[in-house]
């Protein structure tokens, strides 16, 4: 059902259009700010309803504010996504065709990897098989920097992962393009890149690192939730708990 929006909703949407993605804490602060600015009533636990109202009006435009978890820290994020183009065409106004091809190659590398990462060396090497205008080494490096700046990729020690915003936005595309390869988290059922995998060959379920942390927290002997085999991986600490929910 579509609802009437106030200027507070509109300001929230404009900010999200400008930044692309915010974490939950920022979104709450922004919600408060927008309500204060336009003297609207702000009910602290009604952020999702506030966003739902915006979404009801965005839906005819094939846009949506979608929520998703960061594979890094397990926190919730909100991203404004464009559903009219669930594929990479969303990026066409910012990137040239050969740049998009390299991004697709990077996506291939990340999806087919065990750990959801692609090294800069592998990405640079993948330019050899480009069908559109080949990118030089320096151009590729520059492009990777831009993709990180524009919040599509994240980089750490020469390894690239998909950003939270990219996963939220491109999940439908990735699911259709990589049906065979795509991994899904056994706990949260979302698509998984950086995850732990059950080593029992007949099981092999995947769990996001933050989901592992939450699921096995406080268990002395971690066992796979599917096959009950011993879970041999290091259990990460629970990070990014909503510690500062004072506002």
């Amino acid at each position: 059902m579509s609802r009437e929006l106030g200027d507070g909703h509109r300001r929230f949407l404009q900010t999200l259009m400008a930044v692309g993605v915010t974490d939950e804490q920022e979104a709450r602060a922004l919600y408060q700010h927008c309500c204060d600015t336009h003297t609207m009533q702000c009910i602290p636990d009604k952020l999702d309803e506030f966003i739902e109202a915006i979404n009801s009006r965005l839906q005819p435009m094939f846009m949506q504010i979608r929520k998703g978890m960061s594979e890094e820290n397990g926190r919730q994020y909100y991203a404004l996504v464009n559903m009219a183009e669930t594929d990479i065409t969303r990026m066409t106004s910012d990137y040239a065709d050969n740049e998009l091809e390299l991004f697709r190659k990077t996506l291939d590398l990340i999806v087919s990897s065990e750990n959801g990462k692609a090294s800069s060396t592998d990405i640079l090497n993948s330019t050899d098989t480009m069908t559109s205008k080949k990118l030089k080494k320096s151009e590729t490096e520059h492009l990777l920097t831009r993709l990180v700046q524009d919040n599509w990729l994240c980089e750490r020690r020469g390894e690239y992962t998909l950003s939270t915003r990219c996963i939220i936005e491109m999940e439908p595309y990735i699911r259709t393009m990589y049906q065979e390869q795509v991994k899904v988290c056994h706990i949260c059922h979302n698509i998984a890149f950086q995850c732990q995998i059950c080593e029992n060959p007949s099981c092999g379920i995947k769990i996001h690192n933050p989901c592992v942390a939450r699921y096995f927290k406080g268990r002395v002997e971690p066992r796979c939730p599917a096959c009950d085999d011993f879970w041999p991986h290091e259990i990460p600490e629970v990070r990014g708990l909503r510690s500062q929910s004072k506002r």
Binding site: E26, Q32, T37
Partner: peptide, 11 residues
């Protein structure tokens, strides 16, 4: 004119 600084900084 009524807007105070936003908690989410725009690029």
């Amino acid at each position: 004119s009524t807007a105070r600084p936003s908690p989410v900084e725009r690029p």
